[in-house]
Amino acid sequence: MKRMTAFSVRVAKETLRDPVTLIFGVGLPVALLVLMSIIQRSAPVEIFAISRLAPGMAAFSLAFVAMFAAILLAKDKSTSFLLRVFASPMRPWEYIMGYALPMLPIGAAQCLICFLAALFFGLPFSGRLFLALIALLPAAAVYIAFGLLFGVVLTDKQAAPVSSILVQCAALLGGIWFDPALIGGAFETVCKALPFLHASGAAASAIAGDGTGVLRHVLWLIGWAAVLFAAAVFLFKKKMKDN
C-alpha cells in the first residue's frame, strides 16, 4: 500500500506538471463549453442547451484522462523507467493501481471545473451536480482503462495520436454535438453499444433527476470498465514477463 501510494503520487505529479494536462484536459472542454453557450444565446439549439451541454462536456473532458495515462505509461516504457520500477519489489496490482488511482481525482476535478463554468451560463446549482460527478466516476474508470491499454500496447510516439482518436470518438459518438437517434440505424446501435454515449448520458440523467437513467448508463459503463481493466491488467502482466 505504501509503495502504491508513493507511485501514485509520482504519477499525479508527472501528469499535473505537464502543461498539456491543463491545456487539453481543462482548457479545451471549458473553451468549447463557453463557445457553444455563447452561440446558444444567439441561435438556440436544443442539444446545446446548458443542461445537456454541461454533462456532455464533463464526460468529454474525461477522454483526456485516457490520453494522460496512455502518454505517461508509454513514455515510461520508452525511457526504461518502467523497467526500473519492475525491478523493485512492487507487485503487479500496485503498479496498475498506481497508474490508475491518481487519474480518478484528476478526472473528477476536470468534471467539476466544467460544471463550475456551466454555472456561469445558466446551469442551475443543485445537489444533482454532485450526483452527476459521482455518476461520472464509472466513465472515468472506462477512460483510465482505455489509457492503460493504449499505454501498454503502444509506443510513446503512437500513444498521443491514438488517444486523440479516442477523444474524437468521445465527442462524435458521445451525443455531445448531435443526438445519434437523428441518424438512427446501425450508427445509433453502435453508439449505444460503446461507452461514450453512456458517459454523457449518466451525467445528463443525474442532472435531470432521472435515477433509472443514471443506473442504466452506469451499469453499462461498469461493464465496459471491467472488461477494459481486465484486458489492461492481462497485457500489463504480459508486458512485465516479456521484459
Binding site: 509520482r10 505529479k13 508527472e14 506538471r17 505537464d18 513514455k75 525511457t79 526504461s80 523507467f81 523497467l83 526500473r84
Partner: peptide, 8 residues
C-alpha cells in the same frame, strides 16, 4: 538507458 522520471 537513462531511467528517470522527467517531471520530478
Amino acid at each position: 538507458e537513462t531511467a528517470v522520471a522527467e517531471n520530478l
